[in-house]
Amino acid sequence: MPASAATDLGEVSDIDLVKRSQAGDTRAFDMLVTKYRGRIYAMTYHLIQNETEAWDLAQEAFIKAWRALPNFKLDAGFYTWLYRIAHNVTYDWLRKRKIQGDGEFDDERTEHRVAAGAEATPKGDPAPDMALRNAELGHRIQAAIAKLSPEHRQVIVLREVEGLAYEEIAALVPCSLGTVMSRLFYARKKLQEQLKDVYETTL
């Protein structure tokens, strides 16, 4: 992406870019891709926990969005609409994996997995390097999330990363509000169990 185009991103509204894209302007769509690829990729990555497949799924989401653009109503937010497409693409992938028996994720599938034998900093031992400790904690959290079932991982990502309200999560999944709350509760309990040693030192 040329520097001039990148500069344009903040100056051109989504509505203008969407209108131009709907008229067949692929450069305008390219600007939308550049604007939102980081957020869409983060969502697919957090759900999939695999860099290559998350990359492919994010790309597939944009392709599907291009195909569906003629039906996009300008009264809705483009990112919300795009996010829903990306979520559906990713969750369909997860469902197929589950049907094929690969539903649960393990450490081998986590690219940013924790090094063998890595544990939380021992109790009472002051961390010599806060940045390193912080990075290690991040890896522990990602590994723990990767071990959740797709349903639990989904609500955690939607709530904690995307900051969606319960009603928005229920509409997106889709499921009842009660199911959203139950999944969030049990997902957090499972994470707590996996990260107990981390939080014993942190608290």
Binding site: A42, I141, Q142, I156, E160, V161, R188, L195, Y199, T202
Partner: peptide
């Protein structure tokens, strides 16, 4: 504390390789 940890370590936006 767990929730804060997740939010701190799972960025909403990531650099696309």
């Amino acid at each position: 504390a767990l929730s804060a940890g997740i939010r701190a370590h799972l960025p909403a936006e990531m650099a696309v390789p």
